[in-house]
Simulated assay, not measured.
Amino acid sequence: MTEPPQRSIHHRGPVQLRREQIQAGTTDQRLLDSRGPSDWVHTDPWRVLRIQSEFVEGFGLLAELPKAVSVFGSARVARDDPEYATGVALGAALAAAGFAVITGGGPGVMEAVNRGTSEAGGVSVGLGIELPFEQSLNDWVDLGVNFRYFFARKTMFVKYAQAFVIMPGGFGTLDETFEALTLVQTQKVTRFPVILFGTAYWGGLIDWLRTTVTPSGKIGASDLDLIHLTDDIDDAVGRILDAESSRSPQAVAEAAAGEEIAETNDGQ
């Protein structure tokens, strides 16, 4: 067997380069000496740092958040729409039950829920997203951050929430709904209620899952139990409180241990 020809090897951090991939100079040199075009800020390696910064920013902002519920719904709901009034009432009820509320921070249902939470004295959180059209955080967001990347934002919705309440909405709401259901189905998250609010709006979807998707074997019959459909705010909040109270002894012990460690660190 013929041995491969000996080639120069250049290491750039963990990256190994040969032949035409070797660049002159070092990374530090290119950083300090460069006064050329700024195209490098749009390259994928730089985007990795931006992605990292979004996770750091989100984790830092929400780390001290009390127990919370993420609520989703359409941005296209007017303030005189009955759904807006329902969103305000839902936000207030969640705040009264001791939950912070996380929304996408936009208008419509999101604004309504943030408003109800804030007016009731709860912690009103908005996680915005950079979009082609201008959309700033609504005026009822007390704690907010804007994201460039949907996947970083979605992580925050799940990581810092104990339940999802999903009001009528469009593609974005459907995306968040099925992502939550997938995470629960695959046990990536546990004790996590997914509540569809609005039987007239969501009933057709549930019927399709029951009569088409389940019989075809694409999901199991028990998967439908992951979804709770309701029109009643007290029922939705009660379902969330029940899930919270059913936490396993191990989870309770882990939470207590975390609090003990935090108290120890504060005392040092």
Score class of each variant (00 low, 15 high):
G13C: 07
Q16I: 15
Q16E: 15
L17S: 06
R18A: 15
R18M: 13
R18E: 13
E20P: 04
E20F: 06
E20L: 02
Q21N: 13
Q21Y: 08
A24S: 13
G25S: 09
G25E: 03
G25I: 01
G25K: 06
T26I: 04
T26P: 06
D28R: 13
Q29C: 05
R30D: 12
R30I: 02
L31A: 11
L31V: 15
L31S: 05
L32N: 11
D33T: 13
D33A: 15
S34V: 05
S34G: 14
S34A: 09
G36W: 03
P37A: 15
S38R: 13
D39Y: 12
D39R: 02
W40A: 14
V41A: 05
V41F: 10
H42E: 13
T43F: 08
D44H: 11
D44F: 10
P45T: 09
P45M: 11
P45W: 14
W46N: 11
R47P: 02
R47E: 15
R47D: 15
L49H: 13
L49N: 09
L49P: 00
I51K: 06
Q52K: 14
F55T: 00
V56D: 03
G58D: 10
F59Y: 13
F59E: 02
L61F: 06
L61V: 05
L61E: 13
L62G: 04
L62Q: 03
A63Y: 13
E64N: 14
E64V: 07
E64T: 15
E64G: 11
L65C: 08
L65V: 11
P66N: 14
P66C: 15
A68M: 07
V69N: 05
V69L: 07
V71N: 01
V71R: 00
F72L: 06
F72N: 05
F72C: 01
F72P: 02
F72I: 07
G73E: 00
G73K: 06
G73H: 02
A78F: 04
D80P: 01
D80W: 02
P82D: 11
P82C: 09
Y84H: 12
A85I: 02
G87M: 05
G87W: 00
V88D: 00
L90P: 00
A92P: 00
L94S: 10
A95E: 00
A95Q: 07
A96I: 02
G98R: 12
F99N: 07
A100E: 08
V101I: 07
V101S: 07
V101A: 03
I102W: 06
G104A: 05
G104E: 03
G104W: 01
G105R: 01
G105W: 02
G108C: 11
M110S: 01
M110F: 09
E111W: 06
A112T: 03
N114D: 10
N114C: 04
N114T: 03
R115P: 01
R115C: 05
